[in-house]
Nucleic acid binder design. Structure first.
Lengths: 155, 155
DNA sequence: GAATATCAGTTTCATTCGTAACCATCAGAT
DNA sequence: ATCTGATGGTTACGAATGAAACTGATATTC
């Protein structure tokens, strides 16, 4: 292949070791694979909102969006879907009527707990595959990357 | 916050150290930030197809899709856009007329080389931030993750 | 040498997403 | 009090996306 020098690959950019490319591929692969855990009950977006809400406890859509780095319209629609599915309820704040407080319903909490167990089992498998040392380095590197870049982001 | 024990966060799933979540956030952050490099000339999808083509030299859409783990319709549309923008030309194979060979045009190659230079500079900054050792561990961990999971993926 | 299956790539259609505009509400200034 | 500007959240609309159906071509099977 590439007998014709005119069409030979430019040697400069090796995608196999190009970080943004590898990151995108690995992230997508893990995300899609992991989504099997909740796939029949939730969309990926809904899962993310739900998990964030479960961790934060009673909060608002805006806080969830900030925490999960998701666009507010995306959050808004996911909240609507989760509400419809009886995962959560919303209550308008007494004093500031713009704010909608969100919390898991009792059954929503239970159902989520069951999913969380599966999620943790999945992740444990991943971590084990990597070994504890690599896993730690990976997480800290991801953290680092995110914090280098996030200030530059406009969303 | 969380005065009400009924709504207290479930302690089980800590998103801050949950790998799929961190991976998604970091990848998105880097990808969006990095897209500034080519943003005025190309979409993210087009960039990925272009970079893959540049590396592989003369190839087909199918090969590009397999290499970049992209859906074939996504590749098809990106190729169309790149063709329209005179980045590449396509030629139907002489003997098997289903196959469309793609290659960069001369100017497409030149324009890409300029972008690649910027891309490498960007990545160098990233790598430097991380330090060579962490960067290596990160890449190998990503590689590992991808290869653990990819066989399970159905696309 | 038809009939059938497979393959590269495109198109159609329904869904998802982000931008921008929007509503309702609140805070601050005058 | 009213005007201005911000804020939490939703909606309308166009662009991007993936699943599935499709086209045109080649391989395979009988």
């Amino acid at each position: 292949m590439n007998a014709n020098p005119e069409t030979a690959p430019l040697p400069a950019l090796e995608l196999e070791v190009f970080l943004p490319y590898r990151l995108a591929r690995a992230s997508e692969a893990v995300s899609v694979d992991f989504s099997k855990v909740y796939h029949d009950r939730l969309s990926r977006t809904e899962w993310r909102v739900l998990a964030t809400l479960a961790q934060l406890g009673k909060t608002t859509a805006t806080v969830i969006g900030a925490h999960a780095a998701m666009h507010k319209t995306k959050v808004s629609r996911a909240v609507f879907a989760l509400e419809k599915g009886k995962w959560l309820i919303r209550k308008t704040d007494e004093t500031d009527r713009r704010i909608e407080w969100l919390e898991l319903t009792r059954t929503g909490g239970k159902r989520f707990a069951a999913l969380a167990k599966l999620a943790l089992a999945y992740e444990a498998r991943l971590m084990e595959e990597l070994g504890p040392k690599n896993a730690r380095t990976l997480l800290s590197a991801l953290n680092h990357l995110e914090h280098i870049k996030l200030p530059n982001l406009k969303r």
